[in-house]
Design a protein around this nucleic acid. Sequence first.
DNA 1: TAGAAAAGAGCACGACCGGTCGCTAAATTC
DNA 2: GAATTTAGCGACCGGTCGTGCTCTTTTCTA
Lengths: 177, 177
Amino acid sequence: MRGLTGVSLADLAEAVGLSKSGIFKHFDSKEDMHMAVVEAVMDRFAEVIWKPAEALTPGRERLEVIFERWLHWAEEEWPDSGCPVTALSVELDDQPGPLRDLLHKRLQGWRKTMVREFRALRDPPLSEAEAQAAYFQMKSFVLGHSDSRRMMGDDDAKRSANAAFEALLDRTCRAAA
Amino acid sequence: MRGLTGVSLADLAEAVGLSKSGIFKHFDSKEDMHMAVVEAVMDRFAEVIWKPAEALTPGRERLEVIFERWLHWAEEEWPDSGCPVTALSVELDDQPGPLRDLLHKRLQGWRKTMVREFRALRDPPLSEAEAQAAYFQMKSFVLGHSDSRRMMGDDDAKRSANAAFEALLDRTCRAAA
DNA sequence: TAGAAAAGAGCACGACCGGTCGCTAAATTC
DNA sequence: GAATTTAGCGACCGGTCGTGCTCTTTTCTA
């Protein structure tokens, strides 16, 4: 990936068919643009991943749909660049400022949502700690999937990730209350 | 992180106390430098993570040491920038060329080593597929650990990763042959 | 110790960087 | 229909980019 810093105004101008100066009628600065990019990416993330699951009732099936959509998002929605959420995280995690803060806020919101989903996986509900541990693993498998597929060229990455996630759901459901 | 592209020759020159042109007596081009960076990073990776485990016999304890060193590597060896292997992977996974090829080769070598380690975790040894699945999860937890700690600000990330890894070892040892 | 070779400094280059300016033309509002 | 806002353009700014060239200084070797 090229990252936010790796895309110049000239690149962008050519891509959208505008002049550099034309772009500045829509954004005050490059950082202003970057903020809009983060917002747009996270909005799209929610639409692609959360929306299809919204209709379902909380529980295992919903989590399975979310996980499937999450892999799909990275694999099909961004076949060239790779998942922009991961890219933004790696690029911004040591760059303090409003941009990182915005991404952090959106990701925390998502995390909170997902922990809630995991709590509802079992009756009686999982403890907060159990749900957090489960989400940690879920997100790990998403990251592992991208790494395996993109960097290691592993065509079975999706299968590996799915198997790991299914096993995670199995043992999380089964765990004693 | 700033990435290879994000570090200019002027930055580097200042950091090492040389002039820009002075640097060119050691490297033919910036790409030549990048190759050396990838080599150096992977050499250091092996030294920090593999070397302390080398003395041990293959098996669970060795894997535990490797995992501990791997987390340590990301957390203590690179407290500011984050794990450079992850950074390089994300930066280069869609940039075909000798640089990506070099990183790919070194990472494949590491993967092969680790899969071998996992096979030796049990007697009778794990199948190739089982060992690959286990390594997929191990690497996922490493990635999850960095993401949780650096982007999400989770101080318990190490604990979460360790718990997940121990559980992985448990059920991998226990699995029927 | 003379001379070669290596390490480094200084400078200049063309290309590109993010950003501003003044202008035009289209759209919107009054 | 006049006035004002908006979208967009090309030219241009000061700076930085990677890199080549020449010259000096250090270091190694015969």
